[in-house]
Design a protein around this nucleic acid. Structure first.
Lengths: 212, 212
DNA sequence: TTTTATCTAAGGGTATACCCTTAGAAATGA
DNA sequence: TCATTTCTAAGGGTATACCCTTAGATAAAA
């Protein structure tokens, strides 16, 4: 039976060491590379080709999305499984766009991980139950609003969330205060919120804005 | 050399399995119990006494803070090290109040974990560098605000963040609109924000409010 | 006992948010 | 060519946010 060569990219040393040992226990799995840095992984790809890549999404300097995009530019056949700690919905679509083959939560167990690696290695996909549910749930009140915002509304929405007043937004976008009010009012109707406070919470919930 | 008996409480199965293997590699360390549930750990404590406890903070149902509090009620000598994945500042003070002996990030490495366990087992403390820095850094613009909120201000802050208007907050707390205004104004001065929008963002950033 | 902190509430003011309508200009698409 | 969408902007209104000050009641700490 052929060994499946696995690379792990995760900036959490303990988790990486742990998962390495977990995977080492499974026969025909072999961790050939592990690193905390997206850059070092891209270097590694210059000379090597792992069968499956486990990629943390939330990393400093160069995150999982960017690392995956660059890695797939180097080798389009690369099979990447995204790992995420909490149910971070922000990057789901980005990672899927980037071309990952699977998506599992770090709180999943050894067997799910094994299943995911085997599925992806065989040319399939693996998306964990929790994530599919979350995506499905989101699409109800999320996708309906998505694409409904005009460009200008998105501009205004973003500035509103940053705490700018109508006057400040008007100055920044070089449009009248009245125009800003119109955009804001249209956003209210589309999102079904009553005031800016609710809008900010809505925007954060629906990943139109991040406090980080 | 006496074996150090370690218990691990973490709802992330993969991480727990991994850390178990990591600790198993270190001589005189022995993982005697591991679970994803705070309740099951409290049950375990009825009949057993581990030397050191590794406790995840962010857990569903019963979190690390509550589990630690209840565990220390059962046995005040218990040595608990808190584990946190990201730099979650919310529960630092709560955990320290609860009586933990150490605090390390999950992204720290095997050696730091080993050091922490040995330090705590020998009756000392261990707080990782990153956390001390974070606490020190925060104390400039955060700890000054922390504990400066009065009970009523916290009530108002929470309702403001939920999008309630001054009138609605007044109705909910059975106080005058003018009183709510006073509290809100005091919060503004303490947090150095100009309006509710900035306050909401501030509250989320500083973990006084969560959109989840 | 005196001081301090907290909660309460008011008067009286300005600024901004929020809501309605109408409407022209420009671009897009049938 | 005509209809639709988007961006722009205004008039004119009410409601709410926001900012001062002052001040009584209460409870805890010095």
């Amino acid at each position: 039976m052929k060994q499946i060569k696995i690379a792990i990219i995760d900036d959490h040393d303990l988790f990486r060491e742990g998962i390495k040992l977990v995977l080492g226990q499974i026969e025909n799995f072999e961790v050939v590379f592990d690193t905390s840095s997206g850059f070092l992984f891209l270097d590694f790809l210059q000379n090597s080709l792992p069968d499956v890549v486990l990629m943390d999404i939330n990393m400093p300097v160069i995150d999982g999305v960017e690392t995956t995009q660059k890695a797939l530019q180097l080798n389009a056949d690369l099979k990447v499984i995204a790992l995420t700690m909490f149910s971070d919905t922000t990057h789901y679509t980005q990672m899927i766009d980037a071309g990952i083959k699977g998506f599992i939560l770090k709180k999943s167990n050894k067997f799910e991980l094994q299943q995911a690696i085997n599925a992806v290695y065989s040319g399939g996909n693996y998306f964990s139950q929790e994530i599919m549910q979350k995506l499905a749930f989101q699409s109800v009140n999320f996708a309906s609003a998505l694409n409904q915002f005009t460009h200008r509304e998105l501009d205004v929405l973003h500035l509103v969330c940053k705490g700018l007043t109508t006057q400040e937004i008007s100055d920044k976008l070089f449009i009248s205060v009245k125009t800003v009010e119109v955009h804001r009012s249209n956003i209210f109707h589309k999102t079904d919120v009553r005031n800016i406070c609710e809008l900010i919470v809505w925007a954060i919930k629906n990943n139109y804005f991040s406090v980080e």
